[in-house]
Write a protein that binds this DNA or RNA. Structure first.
Lengths: 229, 229
DNA sequence: GGCAGTGATTGATCGAGGTTAAGGCGCTCT
DNA sequence: AGAGCGCCTTAACCTCGATCAATCACTGCC
């Protein structure tokens, strides 16, 4: 049985495939693999030869680095609909630059680099899209470095919270954390204890209300001030 | 008068242009500008519309970010022969993501994005090279984040020193800093005072010998240990 | 020469956030 | 229901690196 309903439509919606014609898309679909991962399973490890990239259909994938002492730094939490490891395709070394685990039971599609690269050779449009994608990722990392070096933990946490707000802010100012707090903490390069402390302080000062995984941003005005100073 | 001897040859040596044919190269050369910058002059600023990318011929260019309070974080020191801002070409917003100043009197070539993008449309090879380039930059940034979050200031400084060693280590273990120490410090996200203190400590412990801008790595063995722990 | 400007060093102090340790709270699994 | 486990929180303490401040070394300039 296949876990994906209509692969063609799913892929078409994704910008990295949207420039392909029907025949090309069929090639991609023929070559892709469906992967199911239980919670805690490893997808790939830092340093392994990178011959595939991925589209997450369902679940959550944790991308992270390990220090020699075993400390973990979460680089990104991949959410459904997102592609990842596609930028590695062109790296000279061609090994994955991070580890990837399933945070929860996940389903994903794996695409062999070789097939996609062949298609890229025939579609400058697709190349341009991929480059736009890579350029954006580069920019994201730059902002993270900025954030790590020029700003403190409170700033980073508040920025994260504001970034989690739905577009339509007027509706509700409640955020539900769908990922364990210690994982978010690692992503922000904060220890869980400090993460907790900062939440408590923000709550004491009346900027937010915390109840378990639910956080209500009760004073957007002042939160925005914190993240702009 | 032109400041560049033979532009065609210079460009050909650079991987981003090496896939172009003669006619294409002539187009590039016809459209490029030569720029001379005195020490301290601004090349571009964070947020300005990005319509050009650059090749540094001579001098040093400092790429950096500013916090709201005016604190500076050096992202990179560009050295002669390096290209920069080429990955911005495909960013949706199309503004420079950093500031760029001349650290010393510099000469560079500026290439209009539009012209190069037109050429890319006709050369998948060139696209692939650019993607390899972007992929590598992405990896660099990832390593920097790794370094910032998983390692301390001493580790970062020692890694920097080891990275500055010439390939042929056997010859000499002397490094000459060609950039002011406080700039290097900012690049490593360390304050100048701390930078100085770490050097003093490494010297006291016999790992290095410092005399002004010259640093002799006298105990490579132990330095490598520091940068691996 | 003297003197202002710039960068490097050194010492004293401070503080954000890490570390360690000890509960508490909500799960799931017998 | 109770035991066990993972995750979160709270508190006491500590450390690394930042900050503040003074001095020094070097350079260009009148």
């Amino acid at each position: 049985m296949t876990i994906i309903g209509d692969p063609a439509q799913l892929l078409r919606r994704n910008y990295l495939f949207s420039a392909l014609d029907d025949a090309q898309l069929r090639t991609v679909i023929a070559s892709m693999q469906e992967i199911s991962l239980d919670e805690g399973r490893i997808l790939f490890e830092h340093g392994q030869p990178a011959d595939k990239f991925f589209l997450l259909c369902e679940g959550q994938i944790k991308l992270y680095r390990l220090s020699e002492e075993g400390d973990e730094k979460v680089i990104e939490i991949v959410r459904p609909g997102q592609m990842f490891a596609e930028a590695v395709m062109f790296m000279s070394g061609k090994v994955y630059p991070v580890n990837a685990d399933a945070l929860v039971k996940s389903r994903l599609l794996a695409f062999p680099n070789a097939v996609y690269k062949d298609l890229l050779r025939n579609s400058v449009d697709a190349c341009f899209r991929l480059m736009a994608d890579m350029s954006q990722r580069l920019h994201q990392r730059l902002n993270e470095i900025d954030s790590l070096t020029l700003h403190n933990a409170t700033y980073r946490l508040v920025s994260y919270l504001l970034g989690e707000l739905p577009e339509d802010v007027l509706a509700s100012t409640e955020i539900v954390l769908t990922t364990p707090k210690h994982i978010i903490a690692s992503q922000l390069s904060i220890k869980p204890e400090t993460f907790s402390r900062i939440l408590t302080r923000l709550a004491r000062d009346g900027l937010i209300v915390v109840r378990g995984n639910s956080i209500v941003l009760s004073d957007l005005e002042r939160l925005r001030q914190v993240s702009e100073l």
